[in-house]
Design a protein around this nucleic acid. Structure first.
Lengths: 341, 341
DNA sequence: CTGAAAGCGCTTACAG
DNA sequence: CTGAAAGCGCTTACAG
């Protein structure tokens, strides 16, 4: 009956291959391939026969063979600084969920905020010819930039926005967020407002710039407390201690991340410093637990989950070759004013 | 103008291939392949020539071709429940670092504590013919177990131990840990000790079993407060509230995770309940921040970082075909007694 | 210790 | 709309 020749020889691996499926469905392997990938232009009846054969034989496509033949894998490299900041966990969770639903696997790389590590990861992951790239921010080595550019692989930047030709990003203005919270403090009558930050990554510095702009004529460089160590409760406590010692007339402290602010709140409790009467304390990101503090922490809610989701969607569009209506997506932020200011 | 000899045939892709390297090094492709993979039995001089050619041409091996030809990739599937529990972040960080150093990439899958999700991820990742598997605990669907078994791929289980034939694990006894902390509380004179837990995953239940055993004749089922919701500061506060309302004579509460305990500590502060005089509070895992609480939290330190590291090493041995001296590695735990009990 | 041949399982590019 | 041919870039298995 069949017009297709029997397979030359049984595969050594015993694996069910596309050829087996084609044989069973009585179509050519290439038709089976097309039907499988949902390429349109295949007769519905044939698609149906292929589907049935796949199910009957328990066929599972081989990503390696696919990647080799098409020179493109179903994997997406996702590069983020850290997992110990809940911010990136939320981002990653949503991004991975979205990509998975579209049939892509994520290759997660943790850069530890080191441009060299990011470049090394990029080099390693690019070997896999990923279908797409998701990277954090715009600050990286020239080599890394060239690697991305030269790969021709769709790339979406998260957390920040940049309106440059050919660049895709989903984020919000870190500077505006820093500005907005500072302005709110000023509106509430605080004038000696310190800025306390850890990590000192690019986005932290952008928030600092927003703080400075909002402080305007009130800006006092002595009120900036920057520490390159990673943020934590303990560092927040220490930073508040430093602020109170070195600038006792401070009436508010804007912490660059919620864990810092939460740690500071605990330190204030320990020291008997009344918040916000004696010193107001605000944070950034609205991480879990802030509402449980004494007093509940005022902070800036950042849309990291949605950033992950929308960035995932944007990347999927790009990988499919669709055009993206808005390549520079600003998702905004929101002031969450509880009782600590 | 180029002074480089033209290859026999130009690849359509323009990619530098192993064949180009072989040509440049004046060896056969298979010798180049062997030299590259460090297979011994290749003349040192040839290895040197290949090395040089690789460097000069900027050759990068293609993982897809490698995977297809050898039916094994350089990727390891790592399946963990959550990233929002710092526990797993620490574990993952170390595991990934160790695997990367040995040349393996991680395919991270988040199961959200759902056996069905784990099974689906396993199915998806197994398509890639990973070189190894790292999974959390031993509780999974029969199908997932069969999938692992049938794949013939080396698999290391983390967080728990099981001394079964052919099973590899790196962890500690959750039950002993639950027992030890409870026993310590009893030693300190507490007798109405509540056990408050969230998530209710297998390891939580093992800790509960340890608690029960240590309570012995003092065990009162009414003192177990179990909530299947994920753990958080807020839930910890709520659980303490429930304990104090439903069992006002309780003198200590053993929380199943530190975020729960930290949240409870904040709630006690809010309510004016003195810790540990009125009620002692202890946690589990020694997550960051516990030492910053008021009072500093007593807890059980679990070696999750080292678990990740050692599990990674064990898996690398297995993937290389080496035998593993101790297939069931118990890394223990440590009581950290601060001031909350 | 080294190599020629064959093949891994799929898709691209070209026909019809 | 469907297919025959060729090839993706590497390694396995077999010789010598």
């Amino acid at each position: 009956m069949s017009s297709f020749p029997a397979p030359k020889r049984r595969r050594a691996t015993g694996r069910v291959t596309l050829q087996d499926v084609a044989l069973a469905a009585e179509v050519s392997p290439i038709t089976a391939s097309r039907a499988l990938r949902g390429e349109r232009g295949v007769a519905v009846e044939l698609v149906e026969r292929v589907r049935e054969a796949v199910a009957r034989l328990g066929y599972v496509p081989d990503p390696a063979a696919r990647a080799l033949a098409s020179s493109r894998s179903n994997q997406v490299a996702v590069l983020i600084p850290l997992l110990s900041n809940a911010l990136f966990v939320d981002l990653l969770d949503e991004a991975q969920r979205t990509l998975l639903a579209a049939g892509y696997q994520s290759l997660i790389g943790i850069t530890h905020y080191q441009p060299e590590e990011e470049e090394a990861l990029l080099r390693s992951y690019l070997m896999n010819r990923p279908a797409g790239l998701l990277v954090t921010g715009f600050d990286r080595t020239d080599e890394a930039r060239a690697l991305i550019q030269g790969s021709g692989i769709p790339c979406v930047h998260v957390m920040e926005n940049r309106r440059d030709e050919g660049l895709y990003s989903v984020g919000f203005s870190q500077q505006s967020a820093g500005h907005a919270m500072t302005a709110e403090l000023r509106r509430r009558g605080y004038s000696r407002i310190a800025f306390a930050a850890a990590q000192l990554d690019p986005r932290t510095l952008q928030r600092a710039a927003g703080y400075r702009a909002a402080m305007g004529e009130l800006h006092d460089p002595a009120l900036e407390f920057m520490d390159a160590a990673p943020s934590s409760f303990a560092l927040g406590a220490e930073l508040l201690e430093r602020v109170m010692r070195e600038a006792p007339d401070v009436d508010a402290v804007f912490f660059n991340n919620d864990d810092l602010a939460q740690g500071a709140l605990l330190q204030a409790l320990r020291r008997g410093w009344r918040v916000p009467e004696q010193v107001a304390i605000v944070g950034f990101n609205d991480l879990t637990g802030g509402d449980q503090m004494l007093p509940p922490l005022s902070t800036v809610r950042t849309p990291r989950g949605e950033i992950g989701l929308r960035a995932g969607e944007m990347l999927v569009s790009l990988m499919r070759g669709d055009t993206v209506p808005e390549p520079c997506l600003d998702l905004g932020f929101e002031l969450v004013l509880r009782d600590s200011c």
